[in-house]
Design a protein around this nucleic acid. Structure first.
Lengths: 212, 212
DNA sequence: GTTAGCATGTAAGGAGTTACATGATTTT
DNA sequence: AAAATCATGTAACTCCTTACATGCTAAC
């Protein structure tokens, strides 16, 4: 069971990541998700609950009986279902967190992986950051080439949009560079030293799309 | 026929917009699309061709006989199908271009509309730019609130991601402000005066997500 | 003569959304 | 007693992607 190989969307990754910190029920999970996934990009119950069921039948998460805490008996609101990671679920999350392949350079995948970066080893972080960087460099050269070749034929707005996108990517490269430098500087420690040092040293741009 | 009310995805909008400039066949359309839609966010044939058929049966586009130009007889490569806008298609595009409602403030919708901004009236442009701005302001206050409330509980990476997203949105606001100023400055003329003036006056950030 | 690029298409399916259905509990 | 918020869930549908199937022409 809990064999790897399944598709495991970003949503599954995020759910496992959040439940890794603490058991939670769906409604709460959804709110946190919107924080982790970028605030906008709100995910709906229509995808969350089915996802929870999938994870449960895959044996990665399990409904916890409203065991210890939780006020007076089970007089709480409604029959809310608190999920927690199983041992298999923890394994799976660890597996996902350790991935460094090209899948992890994508806008969305990178964003979510970054959000759980502190669960990853320093070398995994390095690898992902560098992969992301190279992905952005590719983008830059495509964009620059396309700008050069179509410059004269495009109207001003289209041009401005392109230019804008280009600067945006350039900015993200600088951001990533700052993060890589921060990883180097802080050497091995589990958490990079005070992130404000890392973060204020460069301009920035959001990594995930939204986009998206 | 060609009644409004249909959903008309962003793809349909983009196709209509491109065909508005010049008749084209699918293969070429697809390449241009990747320029207009942000270079990445490549759209696949699996969605383009069905879309073309939909538009055709809706009477918005029509296959043009390989009429005049086009080299020696029809000895060209393969039986390529050149589409052009019908009168209904032109109407529909004009209708879409004139929309200024909340749908048009979304990341993706805004990006594509901006790409065809020169087909829109000055007041439509104003309206969309201001709507987009207010949408971004909303986002900013949500983000700032969420940062304030969760500051201490979040690990450094999550925090950095949030901070980064925040700056990104702030940057886009400044970009939009610059564009609005440019629209004001150039007053009525169909094209805003030399866009380099508009564009170099502010920092920037990409508007569409592409993701998104 | 085989690879690369042009050109069009289809079938299956993934990932998510909206809108609906239900019901309890807290606030106004 | 009505409205908001908590809480879970389902069904239908949208939009897009991947992978496949086809075949032609140009270059190596």
């Amino acid at each position: 069971m809990a064999r790897s190989g399944s598709k495991s969307s970003l949503l599954e990754f995020a759910v496992l990541g959040l439940l890794h910190d603490a058991p939670m029920h769906g409604y709460e999970l959804r709110k946190r998700l919107n924080g982790v996934l970028g605030t906008f990009h709100a995910i709906s119950y229509g995808s969350l609950y089915p996802c929870l069921r999938t994870l449960e039948s895959a044996g990665l998460i399990a409904a916890a009986g409203p065991a210890s805490s939780e006020g007076p008996a089970l007089s709480g609101k409604r029959a809310r279902i608190v999920y927690e990671l199983t041992a298999d679920g923890k394994d799976r999350f660890a597996e996902l967190v350790a991935e460094t392949g090209p899948e992890t350079w994508d806008d969305d995948a990178f964003g979510i992986r970054f959000a759980f970066f502190s669960s990853a080893d320093a070398d995994v972080r390095r690898h992902i950051l560098e992969g992301r960087r190279s992905r952005l460099e590719e983008r830059l050269s495509t964009l620059r080439a396309s700008l050069r070749s179509t410059r004269e034929r495009l109207d001003n707005y289209t041009l401005e949009l392109q230019r804008h996108g280009l600067e945006s990517v350039e900015r993200e490269v600088r951001w990533i560079d700052g993060l890589i430098a921060g990883e180097d500087g802080a050497a091995r420690p589990r958490t990079p030293r005070s992130n404000s040092e890392v973060s204020t040293m460069t301009g920035s741009d959001r990594p995930g799309s939204t986009h998206r």
